[in-house]
Nucleic acid binder design. Structure first.
Lengths: 256, 256
DNA sequence: GAGCGGCTTCCACCCAGCGGAAACCACTAG
DNA sequence: CTAGTGGTTTCCGCTGGGTGGAAGCCGCTC
């Protein structure tokens, strides 16, 4: 925005400082000391102290007995309202999907260049955990991500591949041209897969959740051990069935 | 602080105003117009406008095409870190609990005078929905709530029953003395039940999740149709088994 | 008991935030 | 086409909340 500095150290307005303190937990989920918080938010200690005290008093932060701060339940409670329509509507069907397949089931949306995991269902058995609820992964490395990207407008896809693509494993597809044609294939077939592209040992398959207006707003997918990758496509009908059930909720969300 | 008013209209500090805007979504989850937000936060329109713009710019709020504001995904993402240890640890076992019983499964903690629902697992079949994730219900009306209250220190229990107890249905137990002795019974038996005390047609059973240090920090429970209330206690062994699996995680959380 | 790292409190300066007022916009009714 | 209405956005000069360096205060270690 501004030509010189995009934001002065710590931000300028009070609000931005308070938000910077919250943002400190984006990188490290665990509890942080006041000093750590002040550092991460790039604020002088006294300022951080005052703001943090107010945030904690309100319930946005909580303090443990060691005096460290963590995100508070009141904030969590309020934040549950973000995209509630979608999450609430999808949840029971995602549960069905898990019951039917017994494989880890995911719901994700696109946030910038990443897939944001909105929900995730898994039991105590299968846990090849790469993603987590509230976590992000690069679009081109995951099945849900590929779906979300494939159904985006052409210029979004082009802009995406124009960047330097991160490769979590040796198998990750990072070649721009080949990635683009893979996306074309996904749009035709109506589903995407990955084989050890996020982490060795696991593979995944995903389908789009149609928003009704032609746009794809979300994606659901399954993750399993890569030894069972041949069995993957068998789940397609189930996945599509579940996606169809979720779709109405997605389209209701953001209606005229 | 100040002798007269405890807080001037809208709060005093900038931070408190920003937080008041977020708090507006505590009561109504859906999207709100600027005017509604300003009203609920008790702020003059221009002030609300400025702050809301900053919150939205950061991602704490999102704007739909009608210009209304809702809680943003970035805030949700950060807030996922609240009590993450507990939620992440409990999730797979809660899933097991659901798989074994096919009944709606809950995880709750105490927040003041209410049970806060941390997680909830259910399929598309059984949905006698009273609670929801991120929602609250009075302690004395729910099974998880009774458990949380029963294992609290005596003075907490006494303070609780000393208030006017809300009664969602005719069946809700509101008599202080009888409630206290019911709680004693729960502590002895190690589980609590309800019969149509939250809403007609459903009943529930819950057990404590021990924090290791003797304190009970969470509770898990099942909700089902009240026609099956006789079948309820059969689930006790399962519930206790699952609770035992979750316990280690609860005790790890807030360790010295 | 001196030294240290982190937290908390103080306080005088000053600019960020304030909010009344007025312009702006999209609709709708006449 | 004008007037009316309800919501949103911009303007701007006054002022008190926010600021952060400095100094005091732990609890711990060597």
């Amino acid at each position: 925005m501004t030509p010189g500095e995009q934001d002065a150290p710590g931000g300028r307005t009070v609000t931005s400082k308070a938000l910077a303190l919250l943002a400190a937990f984006e990188t490290s989920p665990g509890p942080l000391s006041l000093t750590q918080l002040a550092e991460r938010a790039d604020l002088p200690l006294p300022t951080a102290h005052r703001l943090v005290a107010e945030l904690a008093g309100w319930g946005a932060l909580e303090r443990d007995e060691q005096g460290r701060y963590a995100v508070g339940l009141r904030l969590w409670e309020i934040a549950q309202n973000a995209q509630r329509e979608l999450r609430d509507a999808a949840r029971p069907y995602l549960q069905d999907l898990f019951s039917l397949t017994q494989e880890t089931a995911h719901l994700a949306v696109r946030e910038g260049h990443e897939a944001l995991y909105i929900d995730r269902i898994y039991s105590s058995k299968r846990v090849p955990r790469a993603s987590r609820v509230g976590g992000r992964l690069p679009l081109h490395a995951t099945a849900v991500g590929k779906v979300l990207l494939a159904f985006e407008e052409p210029w979004v896809r082009d802009a995406y591949v124009a960047r330097d693509l991160e490769a979590p494993t040796r198998q990750t597809h990072v070649n721009p041209t080949r990635l683009l044609s893979e996306l074309d294939g996904i749009r035709e077939q109506g589903y995407a897969t990955t084989h050890e592209e996020v982490r060795p040992g696991s593979c995944s398959i995903a389908v789009p959740v149609d928003g009704g207006d032609g746009r794809v707003r979300a994606s659901i997918g399954l993750v399993m051990l890569s030894t069972q990758s041949d069995r993957m496509v068998r789940y397609l009908p189930t996945l599509r069935g579940v996606a169809a059930r979720i779709a109405p909720a997605v389209s209701r969300w953001r209606a005229p």
